[in-house]
């Protein structure tokens, strides 16, 4: 039922894409005027930020079928790179952001390197380990990262001499980053490059037999996803003005992963839905992060049981499982395994 609704919405959207996009963008632009409450704007900012961050993870997990579960590590690298460049070296925000993206994507390349020839599970473990290691390094390399004290007083960005501070201003930065991300990613996905990623997700052997250089495409895909994680990290650092290693734990990585899985893998809108749901849940359980994580965990399991591709994920993909109906699947197990 959900997929039908989603399909219909998609059809309507496709018909009037231009008009809807323009209306959406105008709406998004005037939201701060309609809602001048800075608490609410803070939530909206978080949703936008996490939507892009989850989107960058979705590039990797949802479109090329690789399995990255340590996305917090890339987020950390982006944030720290910007923060270090801005505080220690006095760089301005914009070049620092670009550098943060590039640095993160290079790190992404290095992380994906040892597992390219192996099954996906090894990449999962390497990313998980990487995420924890990079946090330990950030915690202990006091000279550069401030160690347990973190980095304080990260300067706000300036644009045409106008200082950007407070949720309402930041809203526009997150919005622009998000729109740029969607725009660029959409173009890539609809080209030869995106098609090669999806072909690897669907059937790597077939893709290779058609001359798709799977390892190269996977690396490029990983770098592209990591790049945006770095960009989001870089915008995150000056927004909170303070970063420390404990903001990038494995739980944060699972948090991002939960958004992608709950919202839906393999579609551009999925991570946005997931980020909205997750941020609202975390607002409700603001003072008890454990309860929040319990709810995420249950939602993840529920999704895997009944809707593996997520709420608005790509139902027409391997992400949705082989057998679309669960009953059929259960039956086939008992047939194969026998119920003796």
């Amino acid at each position: 039922m959900i997929s039908n609704t989603f399909e219909n919405v998609k059809k309507i959207y496709k018909k009037h894409a231009k008009i809807i996009n323009i209306v959406l963008i105008i709406l998004l632009l005037i939201i701060p005027r309609l809602m001048p409450n800075s608490y609410l704007m803070g939530i909206v900012c978080r949703i936008l930020m996490y939507a892009t961050l989850a989107g960058s993870l979705n590039i990797i997990n949802g479109y090329s079928g690789q399995f990255n579960i340590g996305h917090a590590g890339f987020f950390l690298i982006g944030a720290y790179t910007e923060a270090i460049l801005a505080t220690t070296y006095g760089w301005s925000f914009w070049p620092a952001m670009i550098i943060a993206g590039i640095v993160t994507s290079i790190v992404g390349f290095l992380v994906s390197l040892p597992t390219l020839r192996l099954r996906g599970i090894y990449l999962a473990i390497v990313t998980l380990g990487f995420s924890e290691i990079i946090r330990i390094i950030a915690l202990n390399w006091t000279d550069v990262t401030g160690g347990p004290m973190g980095i304080k007083g990260i300067p706000s960005p300036e644009l045409f001499g106008f200082r950007i501070s407070g949720p309402v201003d930041y809203y526009y930065i997150f919005l622009i980053v998000g729109i740029l991300f969607l725009f660029i990613t959409n173009r890539i996905l609809k080209s030869r490059v995106g098609r090669s990623w999806i072909s690897i997700r669907e059937d790597e052997l077939a893709a290779k037999s058609l001359g798709v250089e799977a390892n190269r495409a996977k690396s490029a895909n990983f770098m592209y996803g990591a790049f945006w994680a770095g960009i989001v990290g870089a915008t995150y650092a000056p927004y909170y003005k303070f970063i420390a290693s404990d903001m990038f734990t494995l739980d944060e990585g699972f948090n991002i992963l939960a958004m992608v899985i709950i919202g839906g893998q393999g579609t551009l809108i999925g991570p946005f839905v997931g980020a909205s749901i997750a941020t609202l849940i975390s607002e409700v359980f603001r003072f008890a992060s454990q309860y929040r994580m319990v709810i995420y965990a249950i939602l993840i399991i529920v999704m895997m049981w009944w809707r593996p591709q997520g709420l608005v994920g790509a139902y027409d993909s391997i992400l949705a499982g082989d057998d679309k109906s669960l009953k059929k699947r259960k039956k086939s197990i008992t047939q194969k395994v026998g119920d003796n």
Binding site: G65, F67, I121, A297, G321, D323, I333, K336
Partner: peptide, 19 residues
């Protein structure tokens, strides 16, 4: 229920369960 499913589904399920 996941012996016949693509591998990432039980894997994500274990991640959820571990959380």
């Amino acid at each position: 229920r996941f012996f016949d499913s693509p591998r990432h589904i039980p894997l994500i399920c274990t991640i959820g369960f571990s959380m």
